[in-house]
């Protein structure tokens, strides 16, 4: 646009000198329909997803909702400093890491294991029934799931009944009242809810494995377990790596619904994670700046982990996400 004359000199006899801008406009008018289809939603995206990122400035202010942006008081890293010296937040951080590590490991191991075992079912009808049932909890809301968990673990719930019948407990155990048990309960609840769903992708990966490999292994006398170990599991390798990278990016995302719904004053020292902390400080106590600082910390750490895991996978020759 700035140098139309040079452009027109260089281009050989064209009646109207086409500048970059004109080309751009021409393309726009040719693709009018596609632009109509996307521009409203790009605007929507900017308003609903990008404008809130501007809100991160709150973490560096003593934000008061009634004041305008220019009237806010800037305080630098005060809120971050507070977070990392606050004993409660350090506990929250420990809980977040512990729960997401448990979820990560349990989630992978159980889903891969279930996929392998489902794949070994020869009866197609039974296979389908098992799969359909295993998806069911994934579709229930966390409110319903948390309610089912708390009923199951209550004093007269089925777990306590089984323990009593087996003579393993003299009196009912109030599982949700024991803080030390919370991480385990959460891991079990997450597994119950999502294992069937998470297995879908591994089953798809298994179905891509060449059946001839199995036939050849059988002829060579490989046992069932050997075939699983040397054919099925290596066949899922690339899917496992991709999902691992994606999940490592969510290392501080241990979820908040189950922690919020199953948390109570008796287990709060173990159930409170960053998201619950943000809700409590931000929404209930109106400390917007501190809550936002905690949220930023979570996002930034997740992003760093994602990049690191991705480049690590690339170095290992697995080809990363991006």
């Amino acid at each position: 646009m700035a140098t139309p004359s040079i452009n027109s000199v260089k281009t050989t006899p064209v009646p109207v000198p086409e500048t970059k801008f004109k080309k751009f406009m021409k393309q726009c008018s040719e693709q009018k329909a596609l632009l109509f289809m996307t521009i409203p939603f790009v605007i929507w995206l900017i308003i609903f997803k990008y404008v809130p990122i501007w809100g991160w400035t709150m973490a560096f202010q003593d934000f008061k909702p009634a004041r305008s942006f220019s009237e806010q008081e800037w305080v630098g890293f005060k809120h971050f400093q507070f977070l990392f010296t606050d004993e409660r937040f350090l506990g929250v951080l420990r809980n977040t890491l512990a729960m997401s590590m448990i979820n990560l490991v349990l989630g992978f191991v159980t889903a891969i294991g279930l996929a392998v075992l489902i794949n070994e079912i020869a009866n197609m009808g039974f296979k389908r029934i098992v799969q359909t049932i295993s998806y069911m909890p994934h579709f229930l809301s966390w409110v319903v799931a948390a309610s089912l968990v708390s009923v199951t673990l209550s004093a007269d719930g089925i777990i306590n009944e089984i323990l009593a019948t087996l003579g393993l407990a003299d009196e009912p155990i109030l599982f949700l009242g024991i803080g030390e048990m919370f991480w385990g309960i959460l891991g079990a609840a997450e597994t119950w809810k999502n294992v069937g769903w998470n297995a879908i992708i591994y089953l798809a990966a298994i179905s891509m494995i060449d059946q001839e490999q199995y036939e050849a292994a059988k002829i060579d006398g490989a046992s069932r377990l050997q075939r699983i170990r040397h054919i099925t599991i290596p066949g899922m390798r690339s899917v496992i790596v991709i999902l691992l990278i994606m999940n490592i990016g969510y290392i501080l995302e241990s979820g908040f619904e189950p922690q919020y719904l199953l948390g109570n004053p008796m287990n709060v020292q173990f159930s409170e994670n960053i998201d619950v902390f943000v809700i409590k400080y931000g929404i209930s106590m109106f400390n917007f700046s501190l809550a936002t600082a905690a949220g930023i910390f979570k996002t930034v750490v997740s992003f760093v982990f994602l990049i690191a895991a991705n480049s690590f996978a690339k170095k290992m020759g697995e080809g990363g996400l991006f």
Partner: peptide
């Protein structure tokens, strides 16, 4: 991967 988070979205 990036979002404003709970409080900015609320505001």
């Amino acid at each position: 991967y990036f979002n404003g988070g709970l409080i900015p979205t609320f505001l």
